[in-house]
Design a protein around this nucleic acid. Structure first.
Length: 287
DNA sequence: ATCCAGGACGCTG
DNA sequence: CAGCGTCATGGA
């Protein structure tokens, strides 16, 4: 099934850019669960090809194929480091993930590294998520909040979530018992952010990740250690607190600041934009 | 052994 | 408001 010919780098977007931790690669194919159905994606000569899934519209939406990234780059015409970062990854897109998936995975991301976050997500999906046998291999959905709530803190701690076990179990229970996660999509950013902060294990940064990656809030601008280095080195924000940096970025970069954030994050983490005076301490971390 | 990772939280000034 | 110690885990 052919789903589009827009620029899309599957490996960069699904595997390397650390916005989702739930995809796996098998040769030229990338497997995951979208809209409740297993799907494999690959780049064909004339576009992106899919096997499985629930149809073209859902996949196009998940992959953000209907957003014009070239037009978006124009919004940053007067911000040189932004233009450079976007030019670096022509096929990088910001996924539209389900809210719970994004929220839960980024609760696990706190003070953690990408490789281990992926391992935890994979373990949770394998143990508590729905399982799909496909011709190309087994895929697991990320578990629903009800499943993790019923699993409980102790079981999650036994899976090496560390102190995040209580956060995830509590957040799962809150969501399972009616926290209006889906409604955050239609709230103004400030209100949605404030609502996110009431969940356990969710501070400013995780809230912004969940809003950006899971709730369609393109202005949400998560500031982690890497992005803080970028803002300090390339935007003169050294000395600002992280919430102050996030506020600065939203005001300076506009309604799609968060989309750009993903490019800045990836550039910083891979070192692709050169030493650019990032308060260095080490080089790039592989995938 | 010490530092680090897509931080959050509680406590103290 | 800001600063600071603590919280698990595993890799470098």
């Amino acid at each position: 099934m052919w789903i589009g010919s827009e620029p899309l780098d599957l490996r960069c977007t699904l595997m390397d850019s650390a916005q989702s931790f739930l995809w796996r690669q098998s040769g030229e194919w990338f497997g995951g669960v979208v809209d409740g159905a297993p799907v494999w994606l690959r780049r064909a000569a004339d576009g992106i090809e899919a096997e499985g899934g629930t149809g073209i519209p859902a996949l196009r939406r998940y992959l953000d194929l209907d957003r014009d990234y070239a037009a978006l780059a124009e919004e940053f015409a007067d911000v040189p480091p932004a233009r450079r970062a976007m030019a670096l990854y022509p096929g990088l897109r910001v996924l539209n993930q389900p809210p719970w998936e994004a929220l839960a995975c980024f609760i696990l991301s706190a003070n953690n590294n990408v490789g281990r976050i992926r391992g935890l997500c994979e373990a949770l999906s394998g143990r508590y998520g729905e399982r799909f046998e496909t011709p190309r291999g087994t895929l697991h959905a990320f578990p629903a909040p009800e499943r993790l709530a019923e699993a409980g803190e102790d079981a999650l701690r036994a899976m090496k979530l560390g102190y995040r076990a209580r956060y995830l179990a509590s957040a799962a229970r809150r969501v399972a018992e009616g926290f209006p996660l889906d409604a955050l999509r239609d709230m103004p950013y400030e209100a949605a952010h404030a609502a996110m902060l009431t969940l356990p294990g969710v501070g400013d940064k995780v809230a912004d990740c969940a809003l950006l990656f899971g709730c369609g809030h393109a202005s949400a601008f998560p500031v982690d250690v890497w992005v803080a280095r970028v803002l300090a080195g390339w935007f003169g924000c050294s000395g600002m607190s992280r919430p102050a940096m996030a506020r600065f970025a939203r005001e300076r970069l506009g309604p799609h600041a968060g989309i750009l954030q993903q490019f800045l994050f990836h550039a910083a983490r891979t070192g692709d934009m050169g030493p650019g005076e990032l308060p260095a301490h080490g080089g790039a971390k592989g995938r």
